[in-house]
Nucleic acid binder design. Structure first.
Lengths: 111, 111
DNA sequence: CTTGAGGTACGATGCAAGTCGTACCTGAAG
DNA sequence: CTTCAGGTACGACTTGCATCGTACCTCAAG
């Protein structure tokens, strides 16, 4: 079965404020950082991120990311797929995804 | 008199989370967009931004921007100067300031 | 059919953040 | 000196948001 894509804003309708608000949360940013690091942009499951929060809260965070236009959520009924909207983000905000890789200076250096 | 520079984080200590949280607010982002658009990086006064908020709230917002490492605040006693930390930002998060110029598609023109 | 895992909807809660009122400080101009 | 504009400190208020509890839905495997 193909599953239907849950709606998000169009590529030209991405709002910088919504994007920054979405990326302001640590959990959502860690998801985006993982997605941005995988250049194959393969579809991922919701619990492949090992977020230390309840599933209700995960639903909330993924919705925020989708409504900001950063990811697609594919609904399969009893499970859900996550995919980065790399092309749309790069078109609208070029360089944003690269920024997520600069999270810590020199990779995972101690503080 | 020269005025003393209020303290902010070092260039290598800029935190992406703090930066995104700072840019999530519309008023702070409008300030940063204005600063980023001025390539001369001249020092500006606090009320040269015409923010539609009280001066106490302005004090709050400029402090958040300074503590995120995005601006310098120069204290002259009875007034204050604001300057963009362009070099530090570009070194730590290259492309971030360019992103602020992409606020609305096609410059500032409505569609 | 029943069961169980993945996910959502709704509401409640606790905390962080934006806003402003009052009072006070600093320095320049009278 | 006094006056006044720019700015800060503190507190109160309000809103937004992250979090989770309870209940319900969907689908696949028994």
């Amino acid at each position: 079965m193909t599953g239907k894509n849950l709606v998000g804003p169009g590529a030209d309708a991405l709002d910088l404020g919504a994007v920054f608000r979405a990326l302001a949360d640590e959990h959502r940013r860690s998801v985006m950082t993982e997605l941005a690091a995988d250049r194959s942009d393969s579809e991922r499951g919701c619990n492949s991120f090992n977020l230390p929060i309840s599933k209700q809260t995960q639903t909330h965070h993924f919705r925020v990311l989708r409504e900001a236009g950063l990811i697609d959520e594919i609904d399969y009924g009893n499970r859900k797929g996550i995919r980065l909207r790399r092309a749309d983000i790069e078109k609208r905000f070029p360089g944003l995804l690269t920024l997520l890789g600069a999270e810590s200076p020199g990779g995972t250096a101690p503080r």
